[in-house]
Design a protein around this nucleic acid. Sequence first.
DNA 1: AGGCACAGTCGAAACGTTTCGCCGCCCTTA
DNA 2: TAAGGGCGGCGAAACGTTTCGACTGTGCCT
Lengths: 363, 363
Amino acid sequence: MAEILYNKGTRASKRFDEDKRSMATSIKDIAKKLNVSVSTVSYALNGGPRRVSTEVRDRVIEAAKDLGYRPNRVAKSMVTGKSRTIGVVPPEIGEDVLLSPYLQLALNGVFNAAGKANQDLMLFTRLAESHHDEIVTTILDGRIDGAIFIAPSRTNHGVLVAKEMHIPCVTISNSQIEGVITMSVANRTGMNLVLNYLVKLGHRRIAHIAGRLDMQDAIERLQAYSDFVGDNRLPSDDGWVVKGQFHPDGGYRAMKELLSHPSLPTAVTCANDDMAIGAIRACRELGFRVPEDISITGFDMTTTSDLATPALTTVRQPIAEMGSAAVAAVLALLEDKEVPVHTVFQPTLVTRSSTCIPKKESK
Amino acid sequence: MAEILYNKGTRASKRFDEDKRSMATSIKDIAKKLNVSVSTVSYALNGGPRRVSTEVRDRVIEAAKDLGYRPNRVAKSMVTGKSRTIGVVPPEIGEDVLLSPYLQLALNGVFNAAGKANQDLMLFTRLAESHHDEIVTTILDGRIDGAIFIAPSRTNHGVLVAKEMHIPCVTISNSQIEGVITMSVANRTGMNLVLNYLVKLGHRRIAHIAGRLDMQDAIERLQAYSDFVGDNRLPSDDGWVVKGQFHPDGGYRAMKELLSHPSLPTAVTCANDDMAIGAIRACRELGFRVPEDISITGFDMTTTSDLATPALTTVRQPIAEMGSAAVAAVLALLEDKEVPVHTVFQPTLVTRSSTCIPKKESK
DNA sequence: AGGCACAGTCGAAACGTTTCGCCGCCCTTA
DNA sequence: TAAGGGCGGCGAAACGTTTCGACTGTGCCT
């Protein structure tokens, strides 16, 4: 029955408030106490657009402290139209999105950069495809100044709407949507790094476990693989390209499929680390040794990639840097600065122990 | 020079807007178009507190769609005092907070639950001790309805202020702050689970790598260890308790310290998985085999714990469930329901391969 | 002495909502 | 036919800010 009120301002609170909730003090209270106008208080508190005599200013500041004044950012937002908050939209990859090591890295990068730039982050939680329109609504509802989409699927039109509405909007990862600022990684370079390394070790029979093919990254990595195989006249086999959905279980199943194939590769390139970890598990279960029997490579250099056994040879994407660049881009956009539409980051090869010289061809 | 405006509403935009930015349509525009009052539109759109004839309602809804109306949540927030947003305050553990596997688990739990409850998440980024007052200000600035503190350090008084201001506020992890709703785990039970298991395997010389001792979890786990050793009259040694700061490097250094001690334990309990992973690395480097020479246990069952080699014997905390309970608690608090101050979750033992029967005492 | 610039201040509008009090109308019911 | 009660709708206040236009002195220049 008793109603506890946590916020001043609802009509209801006007009716019986007062003891339950010590009404948050507003700029008006300060004004009243000091017998000055609201505007003067605002100027004093912000070093506002107008000058205030030092005497009044000091009194205002002291009164603010006395009364425990905390500015209400919602009100401020309404009039300025700015919120000092950046929205982050994770990819829609079903349950437990935040457990994805890739997202973890990216989010961490964005988080750190946002902190340095004094921006808070608004994390969008309702990502199901069915909620696409809701995402859009949320983006436009005034609580954020700009948005960062992490690895959006191609059907996510939130990016487009945001752009259209002139909400600063940046994506991380390689959906090269027309005109949308993108922080991407040179997938082809990354794959070539791995593939060249494998070839140099002596591999020729190389397979690929692909990611979710509705994502640009997956497509590009697969394409790079195919081109490399073609360009270098490596043996190829239809059964050597398997889809693994970017998650460990997918990698596990894909590897099992690969290993049941009559003709086996000596190395497998995976489109991300998660799948590589699953693939290693599959090998181990079926009695194949990694890397002695089969070399396996990942992509991303997530935090988990060197905890795997054996530690993964993988491609480091500078994801943290990309996150930080994304934040910088949003802020630049907000200040109406020019931002390059496409920033491409260079990957590097990290050789660890999941790869080695191939066995003598038993065939 | 040209000023691009991303948001209607600033005074400035009134001056020259119009083509740069197609002003977002508001409830007023709908009202004008239909020649009805603003209030009627509001009622129609919300199924508001008052009835509206079906005819008018349909016309309003259609007009809203036509004009591409998106409700401005900031304005709504201001009058209702609610934001459908929950704040999340990560622990202050220096750089790369989000890379902590524990936080990842907890955040994921909160994230999933928030999504189901139609709440967005506001992630606080400015956590440095020096910003404590800023955290408080942010919490009170009206953008969130409640806050979830994840493993707050004991000096974080944000929790207290939030509580005092009647902002629904829940903590995950075991800082048992007077009167603050807490989702905690029975640390003692967890440690006993591990220790009993080790003893049953035959271990008696058991060491402990403790976490950050400004955190309740670390204290309780250490205390549980000490008590267990005392109660069971196990041999003890001052050098067998080392501090590892809850991160892998700390665990690594702690283990090196432990191994340089004249009298070696046969098992080491670590206060979390991260430290256990570091400890294993230290062992490997110094030529000790895990578990043959030394058994090592973790705590938390993070996603990384079974990628380690050997896979960690650890204590599973139902962190995801705790996250979801925390969200539920915030929402309950918002509806003025009673919420138990202290909910204790039961941990379970997960035995994997980082533990085994101790070597014959060489001593 | 008149005019001007400027500092310092105030009042009020505006941002986009929600919701209260009020009013007129039509339909009952006595 | 008068009283009463919904129903459907309107106008306005309120939420807490920011900032514009206007006003009043004061000091300086001509």
